[in-house]
Structures are given as structure tokens and as C-alpha cells.
């Protein structure tokens, strides 16, 4: 994170020294884009804040732990698509799940759909890609996540 700030600051400084007007224009572009997309951000944050409350970690643990391998994978991938957890919550949670005996295949389905499929981020994605392409892209990502989960299951000797 600090690296990001320092890099940005350095680039800004270089940019400002080279061309003041261009740098101000860059700021204006940043502001305009931020302004345009912020309503979608608000929608997402609102929905996430409610969903996280009603889907606490314990529920995720219990619903993934007791299912069978294939059903568990399916449940995990659907859960991962709906829930949006930031990485700093998702991976420690996955670590906990692993210790509770959840298979790598199920974990893979969960974390990959969490990262690649975004029902929660739909309002943001729709704004940039349009509804149709957003749907296609998310379905493709879902299929890819399932393939990854199966390969993970094979590699870790959990299936076949």
C-alpha cells in the first residue's frame, strides 16, 4: 500500500515538473471518473454491508463443511459468486475452513468465484461493460472457476 502511495506521489511530482497543465488535466480526469462511478460504489457498499451482516463467517463455515465433495463445490461456487469479501477477510477465512477439513477443491471454488464472479459488483461492471457483456463475462468466469476447482481437486488427490 505504501509502495502505491510513494509511486503515485513520485509520478505526480515528475508529471507536475514536466507539464503543469497536463497534470491538472489528469486530476480533472480522475475527478470526473470518480464522480461518474461513485453512485455505483455507494450501491455496492450498501448491499455488501447488509449481506455481510446476514451471512456471517460461521454460516459459510457450516454450509461448506458438511456438504459432500461435489455438492460442496457447487454450493461454494454459488456462495462465492454472491458474497463479496475483500481478500484480507476471504483468505484467512479460507485458512480457517481448511483447518476444519474443507477440501481444497471446495476452497478453490469458493475463493476463485469470490474473486472472479461479482454479483455484488454488477452495478459497477454494468456501468462500464453494459448489462449483456457483464452477464456473459461473469458466466464465463463462473465456468473457469469450476474448471480450476476440479483441477485443484485432481492435483490434491481429492477426486478421481
Amino acid at each position: 500500500m505504501i509502495v502505491l502511495y510513494i509511486t503515485t506521489l513520485a509520478l505526480l511530482l515528475i508529471s507536475f515538473l514536466k507539464d503543469k497543465r497536463k497534470t491538472i488535466k489528469a486530476f480533472k480526469i480522475a475527478l470526473k471518473k470518480f464522480h461518474k462511478i461513485s453512485p455505483a460504489f455507494l450501491v455496492m457498499l450498501t448491499i455488501v454491508s447488509i449481506i455481510i451482516y446476514f451471512v456471517p463467517n460461521e454460516l459459510i463455515v457450516s454450509s461448506l463443511g458438511k456438504e459432500t465433495k461435489y455438492l460442496g463445490t457447487l454450493v461454494a461456487s454459488i456462495l462465492g459468486s454472491i458474497v463479496a469479501l475483500p481478500g484480507f477477510i476471504a483468505f484467512p477465512l479460507a485458512g480457517i475452513l481448511k483447518h476444519q477439513g474443507v477440501t481444497y477443491m471446495v476452497l478453490s471454488a469458493f475463493t476463485t468465484t469470490l474473486m472472479m464472479v461479482g454479483i455484488i459488483t454488477f452495478p459497477i461492471e454494468k456501468k462500464i461493460l453494459g448489462t449483456k457483456v457483464t452477464i456473459i463475462r461473469n458466466i464465463l468466469s463462473f465456468i473457469i472457476a469450476l474448471i480450476i476447482a476440479f483441477v485443484t481437486g485432481i492435483v490434491f488427490g481429492e477426486i478421481l
Binding site: L11, K22, T23, F27, I29, L31, K33, F34, F41, V48
Partner: peptide, 27 residues
């Protein structure tokens, strides 16, 4: 609380990212 904590974690990154995007578009 959920809203605020997620909003803060996004606000730490998003403005910086948009400034980088602005610089990218200009340069």
C-alpha cells in the same frame, strides 16, 4: 460499521488509482 469499514478500505485505494488513471490518460 460494515459500511464504514469497507468504505474506508476502498477509499484508501480508489482515489489514488483514479489519479494514476488520469496520469495514464494524459501522458
Amino acid at each position: 460499521k460494515n459500511f464504514l469499514s469497507f468504505a474506508f478500505s476502498m477509499l484508501k485505494i480508489v482515489p489514488v488509482a483514479f489519479i494514476l488513471i488520469g496520469l495514464f490518460e494524459v501522458w
